[in-house]
């Protein structure tokens, strides 16, 4: 029943925050001296990426919870979080690709750690769905999905390290720890965009979860009626 209360609140917060975020990103944040308008995609691209990580992390947390408690709800929650993560991840790849095209003139750049990492993660988590749809529903599937989801969050830092290392022989680039410095107003806009994106995730998560639960109770009801 809790969802019935939180969902409208979340949806309203999401709408408000997104309106604010779009307004700030387009009108309030100062124009980038170097890249001009195209830099503004940053306010969506990076929050999308961070939200995708949050989704995968949340999915793994629920997976761990499932393995410990064998609570079916945790399995569903883990699945929904990863599902959202893949959607956010796909959008990250898309926005990153657009940004790369505008600022570097190429659709894809192997030199960009974040993009390559997302490709690896995208491949990994797409296989999660192949696994899930290939095994019959039940505790065995829930177990495997949970184990796979846990491998995913461990793979994230390992892959990131690998991609950093691979630059030494693919791309002779010096490690750069200090990224482009942001001004206060840019950082504020960025934070609002990130909050908006995370709320969007929470809203979509709640909607999909509610839908899936409804679907299941409906099916159970149907089975009861036919039995």
């Amino acid at each position: 029943m809790r969802i019935h209360l939180t969902l409208p609140v979340l949806a309203a917060a999401c709408t408000g925050l997104f309106g604010l975020a779009i307004g700030l990103a387009l009108f309030y944040a100062p124009e980038d001296a170097d890249q001009g308008l195209s830099q503004r995609i940053f306010y969506f691209h990076v929050p999308l990426a961070l939200t995708a990580y949050a989704c995968f992390g949340w999915g793994a947390w629920k997976a761990l919870k499932y393995l410990r408690t064998r609570d079916e709800r945790a399995d569903l929650e883990s699945y929904v979080a990863i599902h959202q993560g893949v959607i956010f991840g796909a959008l990250t790849l898309l926005t990153g690709s657009i940004w790369a095209r505008v600022s570097w003139g190429v659709w894809w750049s192997w030199g960009e750690d974040e993009l390559v990492l997302f490709l690896v993660l995208f491949l990994f988590y797409c296989a999660y769905f192949m696994l899930r749809f290939s095994v019959d529903a039940g505790p065995a599937r829930a177990n495997m999905s949970a184990v796979y989801a846990l491998f995913g969050v461990v793979l994230i830092p390992v892959s990131f390290l690998a991609i950093r290392l691979s630059k030494q022989f693919i791309h002779p680039v010096v490690f750069k720890l200090d990224g482009p410095q942001m001004t206060g107003s840019q950082f504020f806009t960025f934070c609002v965009c990130l909050a908006a994106m995370l709320t969007l995730f929470a809203t979509l998560y709640a909607i999909e979860l509610a839908g899936k639960r409804l679907d299941r109770s409906l099916r159970e009801l149907k089975e009861l009626l036919t039995a």
């Binding site: 491949l123 990994f124 797409c126 296989a127 192949m130 696994l131 491998f151 892959s159 690998a162 290392l165």
Partner: peptide, 17 residues
């Protein structure tokens, strides 16, 4: 292969390098 190949990417990086 679908499950394993994304996991093998870091191995290839470590091996080639």
């Amino acid at each position: 292969p679908l499950l394993f190949l994304p996991m093998a990417i870091p191995i290839v990086v470590g091996g080639v390098g």
